[in-house]
Design a protein around this nucleic acid. Structure first.
Lengths: 242, 242
DNA sequence: TGACAATTTCCTGTATACAATCTGTATATG
DNA sequence: CATATACAGATTGTATACAGGAAATTGTCA
């Protein structure tokens, strides 16, 4: 029927996510199913499935009388979500260290760190910056994988799906700062040390490092809140009441 | 139409959960929507919503060609889920200690510990045992609440929803063991120490204790696996391939 | 007898129609 | 003038019908 052969429900999920992140819907605002269905050119059935899914993801909250509203997040929520990511990534790398990982995977991690080094060392041009964002996301996904635990990995993915808790959430804002390079260097030091700790089976050190690494995001959050112009470069902050 | 005024979708969630936990459906088995709908006396629409929800809960897994299957868990998955609960409860009590909690809530925790003491001290009659299970669940729910972080609290609820990761999962099996009383005393010591640590703002100690406390469940898991007769008293283990 | 292919059956994903409930407004009454 | 009530509109929750596709069964051929 439709020219896109993508499942309608997936299109609905992507569409609503986009609408929420773009800030077109205020937190607390009730979502009209019929209006959304019309706007996204989708029937109500797959749209409803999408809304239920986004509620589980934490982007929507159910209204007692029925239907869903855009969930608003407080500044504390953002802090806690970042803290939680640090805790979970810390657990992943601790388990990796304690239980051991295949040498092949360690090598992949080392190569990723080297690639990040390359990008970090050079001048912060835009193209390289985007490359950094990708590599960074890849590295963090690998950390979750190194745990060897699908349960832990899935949970990290879930928390990371909250947009402001993602490892890349504040990179774009950060790139505008003069302290950009320095901060990236610190992050890179963390990356390198985490891999080394896993290699040496130093679980506690790996865990501590991952937690401290997540604190960088919290630091950038504070900066973004101080400078309104920076906050505008973090679309996920549209959900956060300031 | 139906005599129960409960929403159909809720009935569907409860019904499917019950069917899965009772072990009537083998892991990996595809769920037929029409059959389930007929069995639960619900239309396909709310049933579908229920299946999608249970997938997010982790009880079902999507089949590439469409539909859902009962998710099977390995022994390692159970271990990791318990570990994860320990980590998250540890985070909750650490945050409680670091950030502080209202004295009123501390008092509630202390009263719960006292109530658990009362039950633990006496002879392990059945009625008291059930009381213990309730109080224990209440205590662990309170720990999540003490974090003061809705984000952390929600995440604990989610992990705990995996039946074998719940704080009460192995209590029933444990009650059959001669070492029952001793184990309960150890758990109680943990409970008491955790509350004390929160009171004294000793975050690290509180976190360690909560993690160690979760290890009791892992210990009981090992016992249950050794003794098949015990495993039968843990319905959640129907999902676990042994 | 076994393998392959075609047909048939069944299943899911989607659309739409219907029913029940909730919300907001306007009116009537104390 | 304030409050309660009733009615109308809108919105969600549910049921069912339909279409596309996967899987199984059966029949045929080597």
């Amino acid at each position: 029927m439709s020219e896109t052969q993508q499942p309608q429900s997936l299109r609905a999920v992507l569409g609503v996510r986009e609408l929420i992140f773009s800030g077109s819907m205020r937190p607390g605002e009730r979502l009209s199913e019929v209006a959304l269905a019309k706007q996204l050119e989708v029937s109500r059935t797959p749209l409803r499935a999408a809304l239920a899914r986004l509620e589980q993801e934490g982007l929507l909250e159910p209204i007692p009388s029925g239907g869903f509203a855009v969930r608003g997040f407080s500044q504390d929520d953002v802090i806690d979500a970042i803290e939680l990511r640090g805790v979970l990534e810390g657990t992943a790398v601790r388990l990796a260290a304690e239980r051991g990982v295949q040498p092949a995977k360690i090598q992949i991690a080392q190569r990723l760190v080297a690639a990040l080094d390359e990008v970090t060392g050079n001048s912060p041009e835009e193209t390289l910056f985007e490359k950094y964002v990708d590599l960074n996301a890849e590295f963090h996904a690998l950390l979750a994988d190194l745990s060897g635990s699908p349960i832990v990995q899935k949970e990290i993915e879930r928390v990371t799906r909250l947009p402001f808790a993602s490892p890349s959430a504040f990179l774009d804002a950060q790139s505008q700062l003069t302290s950009f390079r320095a901060s990236l260097q610190v992050g890179q030091a963390h990356h390198r040390a985490i891999v080394e700790a896993i290699e040496l089976r130093e679980g506690s050190r790996a865990e501590s490092l991952a937690r401290e690494h997540a604190r960088l995001a919290r630091q950038n959050l504070a900066l973004a809140i101080e400078h309104q112009d920076l906050a505008k470069r973090v679309p996920a902050l549209a959900l956060v009441a300031i």
